[in-house]
Design a protein around this nucleic acid. Sequence first.
DNA 1: AGGCATCTGATTGTATTCAATCCTGACACA
DNA 2: TGTGTCAGGATTGAATACAATCAGATGCCT
Lengths: 244, 244
Amino acid sequence: MPPDARPRPDELPAAPHRVKDEIRRDIIFGSLLPGTRVTEAALARKYSVSRVPVREALRALEAEGFVESKPYAGSTVSDIPADEADDLFLVREALESALARRAARRSSRQFAEDEQGVEWRRVRKDLALLLDEGDTVVAGDDLLPLPELNIRFHLGIAELSGSASLMALLRQISGKIEWLYATDVDNRGKQSWSEHRLVLAAIDAGDAAEAERLMARHVSRSRTGYRGRFAGGKVPGDEVQETG
Amino acid sequence: MPPDARPRPDELPAAPHRVKDEIRRDIIFGSLLPGTRVTEAALARKYSVSRVPVREALRALEAEGFVESKPYAGSTVSDIPADEADDLFLVREALESALARRAARRSSRQFAEDEQGVEWRRVRKDLALLLDEGDTVVAGDDLLPLPELNIRFHLGIAELSGSASLMALLRQISGKIEWLYATDVDNRGKQSWSEHRLVLAAIDAGDAAEAERLMARHVSRSRTGYRGRFAGGKVPGDEVQETG
DNA sequence: AGGCATCTGATTGTATTCAATCCTGACACA
DNA sequence: TGTGTCAGGATTGAATACAATCAGATGCCT
């Protein structure tokens, strides 16, 4: 399995990984604006490590497309791919449809006792908890944690699919999508979240075609919702300059 | 300012990038088999650098999905995503269709003299050379360099599209696709290569819809070709979605 | 003999250190 | 005043050194 998908309490041993996630989070949630030049020394101080793990994190983020680096010129935060939003959603639709279909098909075969089976059930259980957690959030007033839960749900489905390569792609795309959303609250959140249960039900039922259809619709609605909200070039990337 | 920026001999300054490309090449072309445990010291010796650039390269390759790492446990080469091949092609089809469409749309707007224009023309010229080079290869007996040229063509189209995020996705996917192909020679090569000119012509004409359609057909044919060649029966999801 | 603790070798994680390069600003000169 | 040149500091690139951790072998105890 790819890097720890679980909130394992590996406090100490996973320094460069932790730094990478922290930096990415800072980029997505606006603490580091596009175009910002990030120096290794500053990041090292910020996260209380030396420059070596910072450099490794920056290389990984470069591969993920969040920063750009040139030799001896340092790294800068990439631009928010606002004008690529629609196409990102289209790719995501194809990708997540395939993932849902695979997850359903995998679910229909019973993994009774082999090792993959216990892994599958563990992820499946986490997803159930995640859905409940999301319901609680949706019922409340503060929708802030919803985007994070949303990503975790979709990554969970990807994990159920058992496809490492496709899951790596989703991780990359969903990061970008969340980046696009980060300047705004997902006001389709409530309805969007309820659709998750439908998808998961189809997967549990082993109905591959239905799972694929529901997931495609779910993502497609997100896309049209995004277009409606940020219509006509008024995309979040345009107005990030307000604070210095 | 003088129009010619001297093509810098970036031999020396780009060490970790070079190592990364080398390792990936070794993985794709079988010198490093899936499951192989790769130690940093050995790679450092092999490429005549210290462990630091090797570690950075491994982190980037981990983000790209070619190796898997666990803290203190080292890195191993990932499995070839053979059973995910069909879905990878489907995602690639959505992705490259969007890229071709964007490239055509961008071509139709004239980039007369601004800076992006010269970049665009440079890439466009490289693509012309690339097509000729591929024709020469196709005319000969040794088709070995064709897969590499193929990837470079598709990445060139992505560059024309001007979409950094989508291009990063393509880089990741095309690596996997090439990995799948690496065990065999692409026997559809000749016909496949000729289709490239059609796509590029549509882009030059600024016909977005046609470029998208041709690219989709091109990738789709690759997909069916792959399925036919590699005993499609083993693919867990065999629903033929007949198009056109 | 079999199981378990421990020890040793190898490997990874990180910090420190030095060399190479770029960027900024000042300065001299036309 | 404008321009070209050149220091100096700042920053990245890379190597070495050392600490932390794991895996396998060894020997002891039951």
